[in-house]
Amino acid sequence: MTMALVVGGLFATGVYLMLQRSLMRTLLGLILLGHGTNLLLLVSGGAPGDPPVVPEGASGDGDRFADPLPQAMALTAIVITFGITTFLLALAYRSWRLAGHDEVRDDIEDRRIGTVGERADAEPAALPPDDPAPDVPAPEDPAPDGGPR
């Protein structure tokens, strides 16, 4: 029951954080979500406390052992999540270096296509535009605020 609550809490917090604009928060959300998943994997292997490997002739109850398979899976999953989180961190750092902020922006092309209809209503003769949407910043434009330090 405790575990179920913990897993549920981690999932909820993780998903909430992932819906934020800031890259760092999204990343933290992913990490929490990963922890929740790993705990869930462990729980699926049975109650905690029992040893996964019981050596032959060991003292104690030979019938009581935890399922080793989910533990192996959780280990694999931890390694994978860890590696990719590191990669994401590097990417977030690069994004910060290049753009000077770590916000996820709206997709420029999406915005351009979204406004085509509006502009067409405003001035019907102006379609298709001969130059790509002067009202939308080009992708190369550096952000006005901040900048690499």
């Binding site: 992932m18 990417l91 994004s95 290049l98 753009a99 996820v104 992708p139």
Partner: peptide, 14 residues
Amino acid sequence: AGEARVQAGMTYVM
């Protein structure tokens, strides 16, 4: 990666 590609890459990886 330039800025656009990092941006798209983040979306993709996430």
